[in-house]
């Protein structure tokens, strides 16, 4: 059978198509200011099957696509266990949220913690810091990894941190040192969030920020443990949704996604 999972995050929308026990299609696109149009785009010409949605936009699509929704916590718990069966702790750093989830040995949610509504230390924070340093996200990470001597950045508020970075640049501090300092400040904040849930091996690090190898390295250093980054860490929530959709015994619901595609804006990447 075919089942679909959609994770409408604050920065990126992810689609997973699950068929006969395997991921057969994944698509991602930037959320943009019209997430519904992007969802339609992503769902265009996908095989029929039940759909479950998660992420900040889940209630928006629930109405339009008449699909089931699930909280990100549950979606990530299911998705992480699917890619890493022995997973007991999940760290997800997305566009505007950081989540730490601990699971019981049989995979149920034990505890979870999220950052406050402020986006400090999330993907958006990294993007803004990279921009302040005049770097792309890739170069930002590469520069941070090119040095051993960080310059600590103390502000965690995105706006204050940006000012701090600008004034640090103005004092002549090398950019790699600032870049590493930013990564380390996020890592230490992330670890204190993780420690609020019981950290048990194995730890899965998911979300867009998990694509940042420097972030993984600094979190591992601060935590004193290894974390596992799945091959495609961004799709874990959408995967959890697809798994949940596949488990639903309800008759297959399929709506007229294709008819609803009105514009072809928000070019979707397919892999």
């Amino acid at each position: 059978m075919t089942a679909l999972g959609l994770d409408i995050g604050s920065r990126t929308i992810k689609l997973v198509v699950w068929e006969n026990g395997a991921v057969v299609l994944t698509r991602k696109a930037l959320t943009s200011s019209d997430p519904l149009a992007v969802c339609r785009e992503l769902l265009h010409h996908t095989p029929p099957g039940p759909l479950v949605a998660t992420g900040y936009g889940r209630h928006l699509v629930k109405e339009y696509l008449r699909c089931e929704t699930v909280s990100e916590i549950k979606a990530f718990a299911l998705g992480a266990r699917a890619v890493f069966h022995s997973c007991r702790t999940i760290l997800d750093i997305g566009g505007q949220d950081t989540k730490a989830i601990s699971l019981t040995a049989d995979g149920r949610i034990d505890k979870f913690h999220m950052n406050d509504k402020c986006a400090a230390g999330t993907g958006r924070f990294l993007e803004i810091m990279a921009t302040a340093l005049g770097l792309s996200l890739g170069d930002f990470m590469a520069e941070a990894m090119a040095t051993e001597t960080p310059h600590p950045i103390n502000s965690m508020c995105t706006v204050f941190a940006e000012s701090e970075v600008i004034s640090t640049i103005a004092r002549g501090t090398p950019r790699p040192a600032i870049a590493l300092g930013i990564h380390q400040s996020i890592a230490s904040r992330t670890v204190s969030l993780l420690e609020r849930v019981a950290v048990t091996d194995d730890i899965v690090f998911a979300g867009g920020v998990a694509l940042n190898g420097c972030m993984q390295k600094e979190i591992e250093k601060a935590l004193g443990r290894n974390v596992h980054v799945p091959p495609d860490p961004q799709i874990i929530g959408a995967l959890g949704c697809a798994l949940l959709a596949a488990k639903n015994d309800e008759p297959v619901k399929r709506h007229d996604y294709d008819d609803k595609v009105k514009s072809s804006r928000g070019k979707a990447r397919e892999s």
């Binding site: 900040y56 209630h59 699930v70 909280s71 990100e72 916590i73 549950k74 949220d97 149920r108 949610i109 034990d110 979870f112 999220m114 406050d116 509504k117």
Partner: peptide, 22 residues
């Protein structure tokens, strides 16, 4: 942790739904 604005309604909703899910 909240204030009187409605800027964090969706963030609170995510947390509450996750609590009920668990």
């Amino acid at each position: 942790e909240t204030d009187y604005s409605d800027g964090d309604v969706e963030q609170i909703r995510t947390r509450v739904e996750a609590l009920f899910d668990s």
